[in-house]
């Protein structure tokens, strides 16, 4: 079971969190014209690579905050966690 550092609550076991997928996907701005390709990239297309992966988790049985987690998809090692409003530096 993963051990995730919630930036608000500290180290917590994975069963307090729910997963939210790729954290680097940015929702297009509302009301802005956007190509089919860009929209598909937002809704469907995912890199999902092996290795370091920035992803979202929500501390659903804790502070209910969405957080950003950098985790290795091959080893499951977690390198870093950020609050929702902190920017990922790739």
């Amino acid at each position: 079971m993963l051990y995730i550092k919630c930036p608000h609550c500290g180290m917590r076991s994975q069963n307090e969190f729910s997963y939210g997928g790729d954290a680097t996907i940015k929702r297009p701005e509302l009301g802005k014209e956007i190509s089919d390709q860009d929209w598909d990239n937002f809704v469907y297309n995912r890199k999902s690579l092996r290795g370091k992966h920035w992803e979202l988790w929500q501390h659903i049985s804790g502070c209910r905050q969405w957080i950003k987690v950098e985790r290795d998809t091959a080893t499951h090692e977690i390198f870093k966690t950020l609050k929702a409003n902190e920017e990922i530096s790739l």
Binding site: M1, L2, Q14, Y19, G21, D22, S48, R50, H53, E55, R71, T73, A74, T75, H76
Partner: peptide, 9 residues
């Protein structure tokens, strides 16, 4: 969660 590890929890 996204994973390439053939090991689960």
């Amino acid at each position: 969660y996204n994973s390439y590890a053939q090991r689960g929890n």
